[in-house]
């Protein structure tokens, strides 16, 4: 009982969190110079400037007084939201607080050489970045005929086959399976349980279709759909095959 009451009376809880944060490492205190560079970046990658929170780092600057208010205004004009300042002198800390920004102490024992002033330097960089984004969007592209006895797998993402999947062949993907050609073998999508995965092909004659463990055999497929372009989706644990033509 008391537990319930506690829950009702508390308006929030504090939790620790590690959020990816873009640090804008300033190498100039001149608002006009910053404005000019930002204008160039916006045209290069407009998607990045969508009210993105940034931390202004002034560690590399040797100026005791900063036109912090003007710098913040320049940032906001380019749809960057300064949320805090890192480093700098005591007056810088005071003016950050006055502007309603947080202040972080300078990062210790950190390599000083930040020579890269290109876009990469201001782009969000979450620490573990195993692969560039385009590579994970499409797991694997296979060009050619998948022949009887061959197995082509995309353990991550989608599998795209540009060619035929012959009888006795098997194509598998963690995501969806796309076959630009006749599908005559076995196709299994969502092999790790992704229920959103689908199977797409230009000519359906599959021995077996499976999505997230639910399957249909050739025998179970409506003969009217055979040899037609189709898509296969999972609906209420049932494979739903519909014509794409």
């Amino acid at each position: 009982m008391s537990l319930n009451m506690d829950r009702e009376t508390s308006a929030f809880t504090f939790k620790g969190g590690m959020l990816p944060m873009t640090v804008m490492e300033l190498t100039s205190a001149d608002p006009e110079q910053i404005r000019a560079q930002l204008a160039g970046k916006v045209s290069q990658s407009p998607a990045f400037f969508q009210h993105t929170p940034v931390v202004l780092s002034v560690e590399q600057l040797d100026e005791p007084h900063l036109a912090l208010e003007r710098i913040c205004a320049v940032c906001r004009a380019h749809k960057l939201l300064p949320v805090a300042v890192r480093g700098g002198t005591d007056p810088v800390k005071q003016s950050a607080w006055a502007l309603g920004l947080g202040w972080f102490p300078p990062q210790e024992a950190r390599p000083r050489a930040v020579e890269d002033t290109s876009l990469a330097a201001i782009e969000p960089q979450p620490e573990p970045q195993p692969e560039p984004a385009p590579a994970s969007a499409v797991g694997r592209i296979y060009r050619g005929t998948v022949r009887s006895g061959q197995q082509v797998t995309a353990p991550e993402g989608d599998l795209v086959v540009v060619g035929a999947v012959n009888p006795g062949a098997e194509v598998l993907a963690a995501g969806s399976v796309h076959v630009y050609g006749p599908l005559r073998g076995r196709a299994l999508g969502g092999i790790h349980g992704d229920r959103q995965a689908g199977i797409f092909c230009q000519e359906l004659h599959a021995e077996l279709l499976s999505l997230a463990g639910n399957y249909k055999r050739l025998e179970d497929i409506d003969p009217r759909l055979l040899n037609h372009p189709v898509q296969v989706q999972l609906r209420d644990d049932q494979l739903n095959i519909s014509s794409l033509g």
């Binding site: 005929t145 022949r147 009887s148 006895g149 061959q150 012959n166 009888p167 006795g168 062949a169």
Partner: peptide, 12 residues
């Protein structure tokens, strides 16, 4: 035809 298809896979 299916066995030939298998052989073609091995040849590759």
């Amino acid at each position: 035809v299916r066995d030939s298809d298998r052989i073609l896979g091995l040849l590759a």
